[in-house]
Amino acid sequence: MLSRTADNLFWLARYMERAENMARILEAGYRLAAMGIDVGAGDTEWHSTIVAAGCETGFYRKHRAATAAAAIDYLARDPDNPSSILSCIQTARRNGRAVRTALSADMWDAVNGSWLQARNFTIEDFAPDTVRRILDWVKERSLLFTGCVGSTMLRNDAYWFTRLGTFLERADSTARILDVKYNVLLPTYEAVGGALDYVQWTAVLRAVSAGRGYHWIYRREVKPWLVAELLILKPEMPRSLAACFIEITRTLDLLAGAYGRPGEADRIAGQIHARLRYTRIDDIFQQGLHEFLTEFIDDNVRLGREVSKQYLT
């Protein structure tokens, strides 16, 4: 297939996934903020949400303080933010439109339909007390899209590049959502492991739809190291880093098999995958959760670059 087509598919999937994850990050921010205001912690939750979304630089160029309204507007609506939900949908649609021939009709419907609906949103729809409807809508649209990919695409290279985009983006996002917690400062009088700490970890779980999963797997109260284990190392948790890398390495293997030319991307992916498979959660906490996640995010970015070099240009 055309390198450009593969590139467009890859980014189409990444941006649809990013729109969904941005909604999830915002949801986590909401829950954290709802706790924080009670104890007078001010706007640090929204600051941490912006950091977790990777939008710190752009945000503070436009806004002085991380108020709820400013943060939500910047992450969900602002066309100047290339990662805002609306920008993601627009970019996804632009990539999709450029490769309509490679999309199934249902995929196109999912992408184009999202864009058409998104065009009708007004600025009021993004106000702090109404934006939740949009967040739910975005998740729904993205799930529809991945559903269409899974059930209507031929299992060939077009499908593989699309899946690569989804899982690379998802791994990045799960790592970031987990890191939100690191960035939220507990008020000094709150103990680690205290009531507020507990609520915050629960918010993280819910943001990745893992609340139920947690209880099924651990059958006990929410413990920070178990939440981290679930989202980093557990292959049965569909948004965990380990689960994403099972998909990524499998997909890269299929591509290498079909094209007969593995390269640097395969090596890096294998390395990350091995680390996720054989590391224990204790080791991660020993190293520092934040440090581990930062390193992971950097490696993941490097992998994206190599995939691009190997196949997409």
């Binding site: 297939m1 055309l2 390198s3 450009r4 593969a6 021939t101 290279d157 094209y259 997409l312």
Partner: peptide, 28 residues
């Protein structure tokens, strides 16, 4: 039309000419 015919939809930069032969850039 490209979709219906099952052929690639290319833009100028997807093609190049080498020794008077036209190629398209593909993932392979």
């Amino acid at each position: 039309l490209a979709d219906e015919m099952g052929i690639e939809l290319v833009e100028g930069p997807d093609l190049f000419v080498d020794e008077d032969i036209v190629y398209m850039r593909t993932t392979q």
